[in-house]
């Protein structure tokens, strides 16, 4: 299929991109890796008049250590997130999520910023980044602001970003000592996207009990869902198999998924508990102090 006719601009700086964005308004779309936008345009689900390609904008790519955070440029491709030494060392759960997105081609082109901005309910990054309590840096001609993941994902394909904003960076706090992160996914056999997934960030005391837990479920709602009941269940408990299973069993409590032709709602809720358990277990294993 062919997209409808569109214009193309390749700004050389964030400022130039922002100017173009305010000039063209809602008729324009930012282009990052194009792996969500171009298919939508080919199916004519999206027909922007102008594409503003961020590909040539310098400074939006790569992972760096910034104080006690990791700052990830919005244009960093999935493959680079997954293979970054910094990410693998500090946030193995994020590397895990990056490495199970789509296929090699997708991982070599798709960007973390594009994935976050697109807010597909079946995407991987939103789930793990919410578990990791990430913050998103948004720039507009008026300046810049930050929004936390908990507030960012508003609805299906809808974020807290304004149409005149560009997502430039993703800030992930370095977890405190004794913290492990992990991601577990049931991929759709056709698309490779999330059917159900779970992200976990668990902090354990030297004594073995849980001092902090952030657990998120993907695929069961309009975006990532915090498994609050599981988090509460785990709080202060010894991180043994029994307690983890009891917490994971509550992972679907905040969800009310629809069934689809591949999987029914019961199966999805069940898989949320299975994947939450697997993610928590893996995170706990990594949480060596």
């Amino acid at each position: 299929m062919f997209p409808a006719n569109f214009g193309y601009a390749a700004p050389r700086s964030v400022d130039e991109a922002l100017q173009l964005l305010s000039k063209h308004g809602e008729e324009a779309k930012l282009l990052a890796g194009g792996h969500s936008l171009i298919p939508a345009m080919k199916l004519r689900l999206s027909s922007p008049r102008t594409l503003i390609d961020l590909g040539a904008v310098p400074g939006l790519r790569g992972v760096r250590l910034d104080g006690n955070t990791l700052a990830i440029g919005a244009l960093t491709v999935h493959a680079d997130v997954g293979s970054s030494d910094l990410v693998r060392k500090h946030l193995p759960g994020l590397a895990e999520a990056a490495s199970v997105i789509g296929d090699v081609q997708v991982r070599n082109r798709g960007t973390i910023g594009g994935s976050v901005a697109h807010a597909d309910p079946a995407a991987d990054f939103p789930v793990i980044l919410t578990a990791l309590n990430a913050t998103f840096v948004l720039q507009s001609t008026g300046g810049s602001r930050t929004v936390t993941a908990d507030k960012f994902f508003v609805d299906y394909f809808t974020t807290a970003m304004e149409p005149n904003e560009i997502l430039t960076e993703i800030i992930v706090p370095l977890p405190p000592a004794g913290t492990g992160t992990a991601y577990a996914k049931l991929a759709h056999p056709a698309s490779g996207y999330v059917v159900v997934s779970a992200g976990a960030m668990i902090t354990r005391q030297p004594s073995g009990s849980c001092t902090a837990a952030r657990i998120t479920i993907g695929g069961l709602g309009s975006g990532p869902v915090r498994a609050v009941a599981s988090e509460t269940e785990l709080q202060g408990k010894a991180l043994n198999a029994q307690n983890i299973a009891a917490a994971a069993a509550k992972a679907a409590e905040e969800t009310d998924p629809d069934g689809d032709i591949y999987a029914g709602a019961d199966y999805k809720r069940h898989m949320a508990t299975v994947l939450a358990r697997r993610a928590i277990e893996a995170a706990v294993k990594r949480a060596v102090t």
């Binding site: 759709h188 056999p189 056709a190 698309s191 996207y193 032709i261 591949y262």
Partner: peptide, 11 residues
Amino acid sequence: VLTGTLMNYAV
């Protein structure tokens, strides 16, 4: 048609 693309037909 519910499986008219490679996104939902699991070849």
